[in-house]
Amino acid sequence: MSEPITAQPALPADWPPGVRLPPPDLWSDEPPMESDRHRTQMEILIQSAQSWFADRQDFYATGNLTIYYSPNQRKSEDFRGPDFFLVLGVERRERRSWIVWHEDGRYPNVIVEILSDSTADVDRGLKKEIYSLTFRTPEYYLFDPNSFELQGFHLVDGRYESLHPEENGRLWSRQMGVFLGEQESRLRFFAPDGALVLLPAEQAEQERQRAERERQRAEAALQENSRLRERLQALGIDPDTL
């Protein structure tokens, strides 16, 4: 079955004849993550954001997805694929890629790059420059999944300045309203009160444990009630008359 044809957006009146905008649903063009550790970390960040903003419909969180930002609106130039990024104030829906000129010029509010030997220099250099000068992304984080080093930067007068960690090593994200910090060798989100932002699987396990505790309490109460009835009956007292 052929793909449905995507309608072209309206062109400006002074647009050159014969020129067409790229379709608004370009596919992402990013290579796979370098390792299971990198892929797992990316998924943790995406799921954490989705859990934290679960009650909101005005955000988009994803990872390893191409951001097309060419001022000439061309797919073949000016594109990057952050390991994780979050955009606030946009429609919460699935996308094949993030195309800036089809998103009212919106760029990510937060970007996280997961460092590796092959990407660390670019993440600390070229990407940092692009994210500050072109994207103007308010917050940028670097996390090394091997050494667990975490760095954060916020945009001040068009340049990134380092975020200062709390005593526990966590960094506060004003954009997301959470702390970022390492736990069990993973970069995780923490609520303002310090509570871990749970992933869906962790929420399900927590609910399972809560239900199990309730079941055990109810069973213990039934057993205690049964023992009490037996004592009363042994004393010749009908418990149903009490």
Rank of each mutant, 00 (worst) to 15 (best):
M1W: 09
S2R: 03
P4W: 01
I5W: 07
A7H: 09
A7L: 15
P9C: 08
A10K: 11
L11G: 09
L11K: 12
L11T: 05
P12E: 11
D14G: 03
P16T: 12
V19F: 11
L21D: 13
L21G: 03
P22Q: 09
P23M: 02
P24E: 15
D25V: 02
L26Y: 00
L26W: 14
W27S: 03
W27M: 09
S28M: 11
E30P: 06
P31M: 03
P31S: 03
M33T: 11
T40I: 10
L45A: 04
I46D: 13
I46Y: 07
Q47R: 07
A49R: 06
S51G: 06
R56V: 02
R56W: 01
Y60N: 02
Y60H: 14
A61I: 02
T62K: 02
L65R: 00
N72I: 08
Q73R: 15
R74H: 04
R74Q: 15
E77F: 06
R80N: 12
G81V: 00
P82M: 09
F84L: 07
F85L: 08
L86A: 01
V90E: 12
E91A: 10
E91W: 01
R92T: 04
E94T: 01
E94H: 01
R95F: 04
S97V: 04
V100S: 00
W101T: 06
E103N: 09
D104V: 05
P108S: 08
V110S: 14
E113T: 01
L115Q: 07
V122T: 15
V122W: 13
V122H: 15
D123K: 14
R124F: 01
K127F: 14
K127M: 12
Y131F: 13
T134K: 10
Y140A: 08
Y140Q: 08
Y141K: 06
L142W: 09
P145A: 03
N146W: 07
S147D: 12
F148C: 12
F148E: 14
E149F: 03
L150D: 04
L150R: 00
Q151Y: 07
G152H: 05
G152S: 09
F153T: 13
F153V: 09
L155P: 06
Y160F: 13
S162Q: 14
L163A: 02
G169Y: 01
R170C: 03
W172K: 07
W172S: 09
Q175M: 15
Q175C: 11
M176Y: 00
G177K: 06
V178E: 12
F179A: 14
L180V: 01
E182H: 05
Q183G: 05
S185M: 11
L187P: 00
L187Q: 01
R188T: 02
F190D: 10
F190G: 11
F190L: 10
A191M: 14
P192Y: 11
P192L: 13
G194Y: 11
V197N: 10
L198W: 05
L199W: 02
P200G: 05
P200H: 08
P200D: 10
E207T: 04
E207R: 13
Q209G: 05
R210D: 06
R210C: 02
R210N: 07
A211Y: 00
E214L: 13
R217L: 14
R217C: 10
A220P: 06
A221W: 02
Q223I: 13
Q223K: 14
Q223Y: 14
E224N: 11
N225R: 11
S226N: 08
R227F: 06
E230Y: 04
R231D: 09
A234R: 07
L235C: 07
G236K: 08
P239Q: 05
T241Y: 04
T241L: 11
L242F: 06
